[in-house]
């Protein structure tokens, strides 16, 4: 059931831009961000999305001091997906 449930959002961290200040980790309400172990080209440990839990609230984006280090995506067509599953219609998009 969990595997089928969609998160409302998704987070992308630009590892080259992130300076590893950790403010997003502190700010994230569902604690979906962690500091990675890997260092980037400039020697900063960067933030990383844990892979699930993002609600697309955007507070991590707002506290982040770098203009483009964080991009927050919001899920759309969740309703469509659920509807299609319920009615047994085949997915129109195949990856």
């Amino acid at each position: 059931m969990n595997a089928e449930r969609q998160d409302r959002g998704l987070l992308r961290v630009n590892e080259e831009e992130c300076k590893g200040c950790g403010l997003c980790v502190e700010a994230c309400p569902p604690k979906a961000i962690a500091m990675g172990e890997r260092m980037n080209h400039y020697g900063y440990r960067t933030a990383m999305y844990k892979g699930s839990g993002c609600t697309a609230c955007g507070i991590c984006f707002l506290v982040c001091p770098e203009p483009g280090a964080i991009t927050v995506l919001r899920t759309v067509k969740r309703m469509v997906a659920a509807l299609q599953t319920e009615t047994g219609v085949a997915a129109c998009a195949s990856n």
């Binding site: 595997a3 089928e4 969609q6 959002g9 998704l10 697309a56 955007g58 984006f61 707002l62 203009p67 483009g68 964080i70 991009t71 927050v72 995506l73 919001r74 899920t75 759309v76 067509k77 969740r78 469509v80 997906a81 659920a82 299609q84 599953t85 085949a90 997915a91 129109c92 998009a93 195949s94 990856n95």
Partner: peptide, 16 residues
């Protein structure tokens, strides 16, 4: 088939 396969995203917050 799963809903994941047709999940799509729009940008909510990105570099202004």
């Amino acid at each position: 088939m799963s809903s994941e396969s047709i999940a799509e995203y729009e940008v909510a917050y990105a570099k202004p």
